[in-house]
Computed example of a mutant assay.
Amino acid sequence: MALRIKSHWMNEDAERSLPEIAGALAFIAWRIALDKAINLHCERFVYRDDRQRIDVIEEYLVFLIQIADRLAHRRLDETDRRTLITQFAARVTEHVQDNSLDLFGSGDYGRPFIERLNQRSDEYAAFQLAEDGPSYAFLRHLGHEIQSLMGRVDDNRWVIDQVMDKDGYEAYKTFSRAFDNLFD
């Protein structure tokens, strides 16, 4: 079943601030990342535990932040792009913190996510986002990171293919469409 994302404002005539758009994008990104983590399970890939599942969700979130940065670069000036992406990353981090608290109890889950985001941002910097979507290398990197998290046990041997060939691109398409809708 396809994930339904609401990406139109209730009152389309009202002006939206970049922090408001960032908040909506963060919620949408969380839903997409969660959906893709669930889809891996539905495709018979096996999670060891909830920590591994959250790690996969976080990898998708990092990927979507990278996508948002490229999309914002096409649409906004440098100052507005920086504001949007900073607010977006902060709101995504809040989702990571809140959901991790629910699953694992008290702790600082936001800081490790930000560290992962900073590391991956350096890695993703070399990859391109064309008009038709992320490059092969972009999707391969996402697949590689998720493969690394899930291990190469028999049940998860082909997770990289699932992410590269299907889930990563679908995540991009859904997020890209929502991104455009929130600005239009």
Rank of each mutant, 00 (worst) to 15 (best):
P112N: 13
I114N: 03
A37L: 01
L34Q: 15
R48K: 15
A126G: 10
D102A: 12
Q52D: 04
Q162T: 03
T86A: 12
D122K: 14
P112T: 11
I54S: 06
D35Y: 04
H95A: 12
L18I: 09
R81F: 10
P112R: 10
V92I: 15
Q52E: 13
D180C: 03
H144T: 13
I85E: 02
H95G: 07
D108L: 08
D35W: 11
Q52I: 03
W30L: 03
Q162W: 02
E94G: 08
G151C: 06
R152K: 05
D165E: 14
K166V: 08
Y109E: 12
V56F: 09
D132M: 12
L3S: 06
S135M: 09
R75W: 01
D98I: 06
L40H: 04
W30R: 05
F63C: 05
I85V: 15
L142I: 01
F104T: 11
V159M: 10
A29G: 13
A126C: 05
R4C: 00
L61H: 03
R51M: 10
T174Q: 09
R152G: 14
D49Y: 02
D102L: 12
S17C: 00
F113G: 08
A22G: 07
P19Q: 07
I38M: 13
I32Y: 04
P112K: 14
D155F: 10
S7L: 02
A2Q: 14
L76I: 07
A2S: 15
T79P: 03
M1S: 04
A68L: 00
A29P: 01
I146P: 07
N99E: 14
L25H: 06
L34A: 15
L34H: 12
A137T: 12
D55F: 08
A126H: 14
R140C: 04
R177C: 00
E20Q: 15
D50I: 01
R44A: 13
R81H: 11
Y60G: 13
P112F: 12
D98S: 15
V46P: 02
I67W: 02
S135T: 09
V163H: 01
F138R: 06
E12W: 11
R157D: 09
A90R: 04
K173C: 03
F88H: 08
A22Q: 02
T174G: 00
I32E: 00
L40V: 06
M1N: 02
F179H: 09
I28W: 00
